[in-house]
Structure formats: C-alpha cells, structure tokens
C-alpha cells in the first residue's frame, strides 16, 4: 500500500518536473496564436475585415473578439485554414465584409496623375513610388491589391487591373475525371 502510494507520488513528481522543464525549455515568445493566424491571413492589408490590417485582425481572432470569416481576400479557403488552426467548424464568408475578387494590382494612369502623394499615404505596403508633384507609379510586384489607394486619389486615375494568367503563372488544373456523371464516357 505504502509502496504503491510512493510510486504514484514519484511518478507524479517526475512528470511534473519534466513538464515544467519543457515548459521553460520550449517557451515561445509573444502571442504564438496571433502569429499563427497572421501567417494564414493573406496580408493584403485591405482592412475589409474591420481592422486596420491583418495583424490587428489576427490579434482580435486570437483574443476571441472577432469571427474567423471576415477576410474576403482570404476567401473560403482562408476561413477553412483558420478553422483548422483553431479547431472550430468552418463557416461561410461573412458577406458584409465584402466578397473575394480576382487578384488584381492597382495601375496609375500616369497621364492624369497630379502627384498629390495621397495614394502613397494610403498604401499599406509602400508599393507606390513617386515624390510630391511628380507622376506616381505602382510597383506591381509589391502591390497587394487592397484598393486602399483608390478613394483618396483626387483625380480618380487609379484603376484595378486583374492579373492575367501568363505562362510563368499558369497552373495545372485539378483533373476532371472519374465517377459521377462521367457515365462511362471515354475521355480524350
């Protein structure tokens, strides 16, 4: 009887020590959950989720203050990933925050631009170059397509151009074969 209790106690102590040690040894700095959520968010920084950027939204989700379905650029797939990470049921995108659009980049009509720099101030990722009173240009590879530069432009010279599929970006599609509805038809 005594030995049994002693053994149990010993096991408890050892496990406790190991757990405690590993908690210190493998401690992760910061708020790892928000970090992980932020890694899933598309970083478009468009603010459609109702937060000033992806990071604040990630923090709000981590704190349980925001739902997971408020990011239109992330789309359904993003919601699914978040649900997976957080171990909750995925849900449809909340349409009140907007709907997903084909990925685009902003384009400045350089003929019309008056160089007011308002768009630069709006751009969350500094993807617009130009100085005061000079024509401005979008650095297309850095533009996230957030559309935040559209409203401030006084001459409405910024348009969103969908990214056309070209050879380097072409993707193999999911093969459409098999089973249902194919009804034994031969494929070419």
């Amino acid at each position: 009887m005594i030995t049994a209790i002693l053994v149990m106690v010993a096991i408890a102590v050892v496990t406790g020590l190991v757990l405690g040690w590993s908690a210190i040894r493998f401690k992760v700095e910061g708020n790892p959950l928000a970090e992980k959520i932020d890694a899933i968010l598309p970083q478009t920084q468009c603010g459609q989720c109702g937060f000033p950027g992806c990071r604040p939204y990630a923090e709000a989700i981590a704190k349980g203050e925001a739902d997971i379905n408020q990011c239109p650029p992330g789309g359904e797939e993003g919601v699914k990933k978040l649900a997976e990470l957080l171990g909750v049921e995925p849900k449809p995108l909340d349409e009140t925050h907007g709907t997903p659009k084909p990925k685009s980049v902003a384009f400045i009509d350089e003929q019309t631009c008056i160089g007011c720099t308002l768009c630069i101030q709006a751009c969350p990722v500094d993807a617009i170059s130009g100085a005061a009173k000079q024509m401005h240009t979008i650095i297309a590879v850095e533009c996230t397509g957030c559309e935040l530069c559209l409203p401030p432009c006084p001459v409405d010279c910024i348009t969103m151009v969908p990214i056309a599929e070209d050879l380097p970006h072409w993707k193999w599609k999911h093969p459409v074969v098999m089973l249902k509805q194919v009804s034994g038809e031969a494929r070419a």
Partner: peptide, 16 residues
C-alpha cells in the same frame, strides 16, 4: 509564391 508575396507584404506593412 503566394506565401512569399504575403511575407513580403507583411514585412513592408510592418516597416511602414
């Protein structure tokens, strides 16, 4: 590629 773009965007946003 998307991930790299997102990382770049995050970095630039944070820098901003």
């Amino acid at each position: 590629k998307e991930k790299r773009a997102a990382d770049l965007a995050r970095e630039r946003h944070e820098f901003r």
